[in-house]
Computed example of a mutant assay.
Amino acid sequence: MKYFAVLLPMKDEEKSKEYRADHLAYLETKAKEGNIFAKGRFSDGSGGLIIYKAESLEEAENMAKQDPYVTSNARDLEVHEWTMTIED
């Protein structure tokens, strides 16, 4: 399993508020399926970050593109494979 950082920069704050519950429900489903490592919003209101777990970039992109924030055009989407390093 690989990790993918998905940035969701804010495009439309009103749409973001409107689709927040749908977005959170979608992430809850993905978490129950074992596809979410971490998630959270940026404290400055500029968007958020989700770390997806997937077998490939294509799989991660497909999941991210189904997020209601993305399908509603409330947020932009940027996906990067992420190699996690933990400091001792």
Score class of each variant (00 low, 15 high):
21 A>T: 10
31 A>T: 04
35 N>Y: 14
20 R>H: 12
74 A>I: 04
60 A>C: 10
77 L>M: 11
33 E>Q: 15
56 S>V: 10
59 E>F: 08
86 I>N: 05
63 M>S: 10
79 V>P: 04
68 P>A: 04
72 S>I: 02
61 E>L: 09
59 E>L: 09
31 A>F: 08
1 M>L: 11
22 D>W: 05
50 I>E: 02
54 A>T: 02
1 M>W: 08
72 S>E: 02
86 I>Y: 06
2 K>E: 05
25 A>V: 02
54 A>C: 00
14 E>T: 15
32 K>N: 08
86 I>P: 01
13 E>L: 13
76 D>Q: 13
55 E>I: 02
8 L>S: 10
27 L>E: 00
8 L>G: 04
11 K>F: 05
29 T>R: 09
78 E>Q: 13
25 A>Y: 01
51 I>H: 01
69 Y>Q: 11
44 D>S: 05
86 I>W: 06
44 D>P: 01
56 S>F: 14
58 E>W: 10
27 L>S: 01
7 L>K: 14
73 N>G: 15
77 L>F: 08
16 S>H: 07
64 A>V: 07
7 L>S: 12
14 E>D: 13
21 A>K: 12
80 H>V: 09
24 L>Q: 06
13 E>D: 12
31 A>C: 03
6 V>H: 06
15 K>L: 14
4 F>A: 10
81 E>A: 14
58 E>N: 13
66 Q>M: 12
27 L>C: 01
2 K>H: 09
76 D>W: 11
86 I>L: 10
79 V>N: 09
15 K>R: 13
4 F>K: 06
44 D>M: 05
82 W>I: 07
26 Y>E: 00
11 K>L: 13
64 A>I: 06
65 K>V: 03
75 R>F: 03
17 K>F: 12
23 H>Q: 07
36 I>V: 15
56 S>D: 10
49 L>K: 04
61 E>W: 03
26 Y>Q: 00
5 A>K: 02
58 E>D: 15
17 K>H: 14
41 R>F: 07
54 A>Q: 01
53 K>N: 03
26 Y>N: 03
86 I>G: 00
50 I>C: 01
33 E>K: 15
16 S>W: 06
69 Y>D: 10
88 D>Y: 09
79 V>L: 06
31 A>Q: 02
50 I>G: 01
88 D>W: 03
88 D>P: 10
23 H>R: 06
13 E>I: 14
80 H>N: 08
83 T>G: 11
84 M>Y: 03
30 K>E: 06
83 T>P: 00
84 M>F: 04
66 Q>S: 13
78 E>V: 13
45 G>L: 01
8 L>T: 14
12 D>Y: 11
25 A>N: 03
42 F>L: 15
74 A>C: 07
47 G>D: 00
68 P>F: 07
16 S>L: 06
86 I>A: 06
77 L>A: 12
49 L>N: 05
24 L>S: 04
29 T>K: 12
44 D>L: 04
58 E>R: 13
47 G>A: 04
59 E>T: 12
32 K>R: 09
4 F>Q: 08
49 L>Q: 01
56 S>C: 10
18 E>T: 15
71 T>C: 02
54 A>D: 00
53 K>W: 02
68 P>K: 06
76 D>K: 15
69 Y>C: 12
11 K>V: 11
